[in-house]
Design a protein around this nucleic acid. Structure first.
Length: 205
DNA sequence: AGCACGATTAACT
DNA sequence: GTTAATCGTGCTC
């Protein structure tokens, strides 16, 4: 009994709930900085502190996949907040996003970088041959490091049995945050190409 | 059925 | 600094 209660404390209480994700996407993107992304594999934790995010907001946003409207691919973004949107791009890489805002409004936060904190051995194997600094400093790289792929698309972050979830972490002051335009949007028209919806945190060691 | 392109990465000059 | 790799998606014919 006591173990069950303890287990609930450590696995649930520290996690971000759906109400965190069901808010304006820019707030979610900013406040995800410093939180801990956790990937469960057979009961083992692989995790890192989120230090870079980008917001993608609505059908009007010409950088957002939802500009194409509701399709098989974008359907997840129209769903409830607190789920994953994992998609495949450039023929090689998976990208991890968290769905935000009310059901029916398509928006998400792309996770672009983490600082490894747990399961370092597993990450080292998956990123073998690369400098440690480049293990998880890109959206495709961190999905390789955490073994995240299409099977993790449309997964709920906010249920006890989640294989991917987010925990409260360190608080990042505004003085440590850089806000700038999103990257990789070469063919996208203004103002969307330059709108500053990218958030980066300078983490203390 | 065919086409252009992409929320990237790694390798190369 | 530049560029090839590689294939699912969405659009057009």
């Amino acid at each position: 009994m006591r173990c069950l209660w303890l287990n609930w404390r450590v696995t649930s209480v520290k996690r971000l709930e759906r109400s965190f994700f069901n808010r304006p996407t820019l707030h979610v993107a900013r406040e995800l900085l410093g939180t801990r992304l956790v990937r469960m594999e057979s009961g083992e934790r692989t995790a890192g502190i989120i230090n870079e995010t980008e917001a993608y907001i609505g059908e009007e946003d010409q950088g957002c996949h939802a500009k194409a409207g509701l399709t098989r691919r974008t359907r997840v973004m129209y769903g409830p907040a607190g789920r994953t949107y994992v998609y495949f791009t450039y023929g090689n890489y998976w990208m991890l996003n968290f769905v935000t805002e009310d059901e029916g409004f398509p928006a998400a936060v792309l996770i672009r970088g983490i600082v490894p904190r747990e399961g370092i051995e597993r990450i080292a194997v998956r990123r073998a041959g690369r400098p440690q600094k480049q293990w998880t400093d890109g959206p495709g790289k961190l999905c390789i490091a955490l073994a995240i792929g299409g099977e993790q698309n449309d997964a709920d972050l906010c249920v006890p049995e989640a294989e991917i979830f987010v925990e409260f972490g360190e608080s990042i002051p505004d003085s440590s945050v850089t806000i700038s335009p999103r990257v990789g949007l070469n063919g996208v028209p203004e103002p969307w190409k330059s709108i500053p919806w990218r958030f980066r945190a300078r983490l203390e060691t």
